[in-house]
Computed example of a mutant assay.
Amino acid sequence: MTHPETAVLAAQEPAAPVTPVAPRPRTFWSKLGQSFSMFRNGKSIAGLIILGFFVLIALLSDLIAPYGPLDKDFTALKQPPSAAHWLGTTHMGEDVLSQIIYGTRGVLVVGFAAGIIATLIAVVVGVTAGYISGWKSEGLSAITNVFLVLPGLPLIIIVASQYQNPSLLLISGVLAITGWAWGGRVLRAQTMSLRNRDFVQAARANGEPLYRIITVEMLPNLTAIIASSFVGTVTAAVLGLTTLAFIGVIPITNLNWGTILFWAQQNGAFPDFWWWYVPAGLCIALLGMALSLINFGIDEYVNPRLRSAGERARAMRKKGIKMSSSVTAVRTQDPGEEPAPPAGN
């Protein structure tokens, strides 16, 4: 049995102070993983599925193509789709499906190579121009503005026409040089808003080197914008490649969807022989739609207003409320239920 005085003394003793647990510091990989959470929404997932389908076709083209891209069957000239040729044949008896499968590789190689090169240039120029100040920043900004107003398609035609058989890497480099400026300008503006943040100032006060401030402190916060710039550059490169091939600037040895459209137009396939040009046009449209969906998902993640609006829309759809409905649902009262009290009481 506890003595009363002991109980009183125990009650008067102050409680032991609770030591607060410091939150775990966010590492570089945790910041990077949180940045790539932009690919978790429905638009980005749908775009990634379509893009992954084309990537698989490009990687496995030698295995899944029924014929070689230039194999000729002179007994089936301009034939519609059949069991032997699922998407028909060309004027030389070449299988259209095989040409589309092999052409996917060239389109993706040029698109992703141009996107990587242009994104690297945009990151280096844009982040550097946004972090430093003075005449160096203004000089890099002036270079960005020059490339921003540079007419891309005429320059690409002039450069590509100087070579007898330009390689895919050369075409990618020309497309990247004419397509990096917009991403560089956006990154410069975002970097200028980040360089005065508290965590950047603290890193600078601790004597962190410049490369670590940019790579560890700033780049994880720019991942979404960099990804959006990359996707936009890939889309522009794919459209630029198919345009150059369609107008005949790129040689026929660089097989892609644009060269299929070029030969279809040169040999009078429009509009009767639809199987020659419609599949290639649909592939261009599907790839553009996939990249646009990915870009829309990234935009929704980057823009807080779009992100909150998307979250509200998804929550309302789960409750069965249509966003297009202009009438608010009113809850009816049961006959035996007491009326709710006024809001002021």
Rank of each mutant, 00 (worst) to 15 (best):
G179E: 00
L169F: 12
V174C: 03
Y211K: 07
T191D: 10
F199M: 07
W180Q: 02
W182A: 12
E208L: 01
L175Q: 12
R195Y: 10
W182I: 14
T178N: 04
G183M: 10
I214N: 08
R188A: 09
G173E: 02
R185C: 00
L170T: 15
A181C: 14
G179A: 02
S193F: 01
P209K: 14
R197W: 13
V200R: 11
N196A: 07
A189Y: 02
I213W: 12
A202E: 14
L194S: 02
V174F: 00
L194R: 01
A189R: 01
Q201T: 14
T178E: 00
T215C: 10
R212P: 02
G173P: 14
P209R: 08
Y211A: 05
E208P: 12
S172I: 07
G179P: 07
T178S: 08
R195E: 04
N196I: 06
G183Y: 04
Y211Q: 00
R195T: 05
T178H: 01
T191P: 14
A176Y: 12
M192V: 14
T215F: 09
L169C: 12
V186R: 06
A176M: 01
Q190N: 05
F199G: 13
D198M: 13
A205I: 05
P166D: 00
L187T: 02
P166T: 02
A203M: 08
L187C: 05
L168R: 15
Q190W: 03
L210F: 07
V200E: 04
R204E: 05
S172G: 10
V174I: 03
I214S: 00
L170M: 05
W180S: 14
L210Y: 04
R197P: 13
I171G: 11
R188G: 02
P209A: 14
T215S: 01
R197N: 11
R204D: 06
F199C: 07
G179Q: 00
L210H: 05
I171E: 07
P166Q: 06
I213P: 09
L170K: 14
A181S: 10
